[in-house]
């Protein structure tokens, strides 16, 4: 055996020990189930999914073409198109607003980051209590109902025009702490001298912001966008707690994830169809992250 080969193999036992545990977990709980789901997606099963029969890969295209799936994708995209830009804009606004040394600024920063302490369940229940049309807070403020009767009839969560936006607001609120913290950190990473030299060059506040601050925030904003987008595409808890995918009949808040796991889903006892939808969700997210990474030309990674 040559020396090079020897060195190539010398570390193998140690590598096995170090990589083994991670590899086992990732293969068993990420790659294997993905493969199984892809296979299951061309099957139809009995209610316990103990007996499945293949119906052909055409099931994927059929699901793709189906009204329910397209509606769910459409709802999900709308949800993302509301939560991501608004969440991002609010995050930037708050961060810029609080990025100044002045009295009591610490208090405001704490307030702006506070929602990071709320999980999706906590935030959704808080908003449920605000929005519910009978016992909710907003519904019991008289003058507000005079201006916006929809709060009471049928209720922001029950009206097909406002349900998704209402869920989105709750979601934006819950994510705002996170967005604020990240962008604040990004702002603080920008060297002060750059801002000041731009000031010396006579750039006004807004131009300084668009020409200096925003470009330098690029990686931070990309990261935030990616995280917010993936959260939007995987939204489940807020829908489960606030609307159950309704209001019917439009299923105005049935997102793709809710179509798979929601209790009112029409495919709830059909494991094969659920798998097909899940795999298609994966493909969509894959395409989306490829777009995001390529479009912004920067390599940034985000977590689970």
């Amino acid at each position: 055996m040559s020396g090079a080969t020897k060195r190539r193999w010398r570390d193998v036992p140690l590598a096995a020990v170090m990589l083994g545990p991670s590899l086992v977990v990732l293969v068993a709980f990420v790659l294997y189930p993905l493969g199984r789901a892809v296979w299951l997606g061309q099957q139809r099963c009995n209610v316990q999914a103990t007996k499945c029969r293949s119906v052909g890969w055409g099931q994927y295209t059929d699901v793709l073409m189906s009204n329910e799936f397209q509606s769910a994708v459409w709802v999900t995209v709308k949800f993302a198109l509301i939560t991501v830009p608004v969440g991002l804009a609010l995050g930037i606004g708050l961060a810029v607003l609080a990025d100044k040394h002045m009295r009591h600024i610490g208090f405001f920063r704490t307030v702006f980051s506070s929602t990071v302490a709320t999980s999706v369940a906590v935030a959704s229940l808080m908003w449920l209590f605000l929005l519910q049309p009978s016992v909710g807070v907003l519904a019991n403020i008289g003058w507000l109902n005079d201006i916006f009767p929809v709060i009471k009839e049928p209720g922001l969560l029950n009206d097909k025009g406002t349900a998704l936006s209402s869920v989105a607001i709750s979601s934006i609120w819950a994510n705002l702490g996170f967005t604020f913290i990240i962008i604040t950190a990004g702002l603080q990473g920008i060297p002060r001298e750059l801002q000041e030299s731009a000031f010396v060059d006579g750039a006004g506040g807004w131009r300084r912001f668009t020409n200096v601050t925003l470009p330098l925030l690029g990686p931070t904003l990309l990261f935030t966008t990616v995280v917010l987008t993936s959260r939007a595409f995987q939204a489940y808890g807020e829908i489960d707690l606030l609307t159950n995918g309704g209001p019917v009949p439009q299923q105005s808040t049935t997102t793709v994830t809710y179509l798979i796991y929601g209790s009112s889903s029409i495919i709830k006892s059909n494991e094969g169809l659920k798998a097909a939808v899940a795999v298609l969700l994966f493909v969509i997210l894959l395409g989306l992250s490829a777009l995001q990474f390529r479009g912004l030309g920067k390599r940034v990674h985000y977590g689970s």
Binding site: S22, V27, P33, L40, Q234, F282
Partner: peptide, 24 residues
Amino acid sequence: FFFAIFMATLLVPFEVTLLINRRT
């Protein structure tokens, strides 16, 4: 190859694997 496997798992949303993981 192994590193590629690791990175590939980053792209799989948990929602996709839940169904099967429940059974596992």
